[in-house]
Amino acid sequence: MSFEISALIGDPFAISTLSFSVISWIVAIAGAGASDQSKFPHFTWWGIVYQLVVIIFILVFYLFNIIELYKFTLVGLLSIAFVYTTNSVNQLIYHTNDSGNSCCAAGCILLSMVDLIWILYFGGHPESPTNQFIDSFSLKKHIHTQAHLPSSDDKVPHIVDDEEYKGPISPVMNNQFQDSNLRQSQLTNAKSTGPYMSSSQLNGLENFSSSDVNQRDLTSTKRQTIYNDTSSNNNAPSNTFRYKAKALYSYDANPEDINEISFVKDEILEVDDIDGKWWQARRANGQVGICPSNYVKLLD
């Protein structure tokens, strides 16, 4: 956790709602101070102070970029604040005629409005239309951490597409292809049966080395990573992982998918290829696979 002013500055929703809440709170506290205390409901003082604490919490969570981790907590706190402000409005408007009370009531009404907006946003699902519309204005996209597991259809195929290779094949490679028809059949079957290649479909290809193939076109946007069984990951060449991420939740890999890896909450993972919903990841024990991006958070 580190202080990030950009997390607040880059989010117009956070700046606008926090500014609106601070102005509303100032109106409420000014009205409360100018009121005749003999006619002022003492319960409202506690509500005003409580509202200030909630505003400070939200500001701190945004500045340290941990707002996603406390959304459900904030929904509960804001619900209590909403009850306080609406009840204070009822007491201030219908039971007194003091101008200071009316000013405080106006501030409480504004606070009730911003509390309701926060409840709808923080309590809404990240993929709901309202949340997606609000987040679309953010300069720094937040990582959604709610418990949502993308379907298997969201996974980016990891099969090497033979149509991507435009360069010529060297004679050395031709010599090692003793049964090219069989290997071509294996690649075709892999693409037709699913997005991943099993270890049985890779039989006969284990003797290939990068030195046997000329430079290929690596500018394609498709992923070209093939994961073998997790039991053989320790023997596979190590990949370069440029980032580190912290697990926000524990995740159990699908036993039917040999490419996924399991991890526990707060575990530090090395990750790469972070442009999709499934990231390449490596655990501390050397296990390599893919993990859902909404279960982890990038570290600076």
Score class of each variant (00 low, 15 high):
residue 204 G to C: 10
residue 249 Y to S: 14
residue 220 S to D: 09
residue 5 I to S: 15
residue 132 Q to E: 15
residue 132 Q to H: 08
residue 49 V to H: 00
residue 200 S to M: 09
residue 261 I to Y: 01
residue 277 K to W: 14
residue 108 C to Y: 08
residue 84 Y to N: 14
residue 33 G to Y: 15
residue 123 G to W: 00
residue 98 D to S: 02
residue 230 T to D: 14
residue 265 K to V: 07
residue 67 I to T: 14
residue 26 I to D: 02
residue 16 S to R: 00
residue 14 A to G: 05
residue 234 N to K: 02
residue 29 I to D: 09
residue 105 A to M: 03
residue 244 K to T: 13
residue 72 F to T: 15
residue 34 A to V: 05
residue 15 I to L: 14
residue 211 S to I: 00
residue 144 H to N: 14
residue 82 F to N: 09
residue 220 S to V: 11
residue 18 L to E: 09
residue 52 L to V: 06
residue 81 A to F: 04
residue 160 V to F: 12
residue 211 S to N: 10
residue 64 F to C: 02
residue 50 Y to M: 09
residue 235 N to W: 14
residue 297 K to E: 07
residue 72 F to W: 06
residue 210 S to Q: 12
residue 289 G to S: 02
residue 247 A to Q: 03
residue 204 G to K: 07
residue 59 L to T: 15
residue 145 T to V: 06
residue 282 R to Q: 14
residue 113 M to P: 00
residue 146 Q to R: 04
residue 241 F to Y: 15
residue 229 D to C: 03
residue 64 F to V: 14
residue 2 S to C: 12
residue 76 G to S: 06
residue 30 A to Q: 07
residue 9 I to C: 04
residue 110 L to T: 06
residue 136 S to I: 10
residue 186 Q to E: 06
residue 87 N to R: 00
residue 179 D to F: 09
residue 140 K to E: 13
residue 10 G to Y: 02
residue 25 W to I: 06
residue 284 A to Q: 10
residue 12 P to I: 07
residue 261 I to V: 10
residue 281 A to D: 02
residue 226 I to T: 14
residue 83 V to C: 13
residue 9 I to S: 13
residue 250 S to Y: 01
residue 51 Q to I: 10
residue 216 R to H: 14
residue 235 N to T: 12
residue 60 V to K: 04
residue 4 E to R: 12
residue 243 Y to N: 03
residue 215 Q to L: 13
residue 43 F to P: 05
residue 88 S to Y: 04
residue 275 D to V: 11
residue 107 G to K: 01
residue 289 G to P: 01
residue 103 C to D: 11
residue 128 S to K: 02
residue 88 S to H: 08
residue 151 S to L: 15
residue 293 S to R: 01
residue 98 D to E: 11
residue 22 V to A: 15
residue 232 S to Y: 08
residue 195 P to W: 09
residue 154 D to V: 04
residue 105 A to V: 04
residue 71 K to A: 11
residue 66 I to L: 13
residue 177 F to T: 01
residue 185 S to E: 14
residue 1 M to Q: 07
residue 84 Y to I: 02
residue 254 N to I: 03
residue 278 W to Y: 15
residue 216 R to Q: 14
residue 12 P to L: 12
residue 24 S to N: 08
residue 102 S to N: 02
residue 260 E to S: 01
residue 20 F to G: 07
residue 108 C to L: 10
residue 71 K to S: 13
residue 160 V to D: 09
residue 193 T to E: 12
residue 41 P to H: 11
residue 117 I to R: 01
residue 88 S to M: 04
residue 275 D to N: 13
residue 175 N to Y: 13
residue 70 Y to P: 01
residue 300 D to T: 07
residue 8 L to W: 10
residue 148 H to R: 01
residue 98 D to N: 09
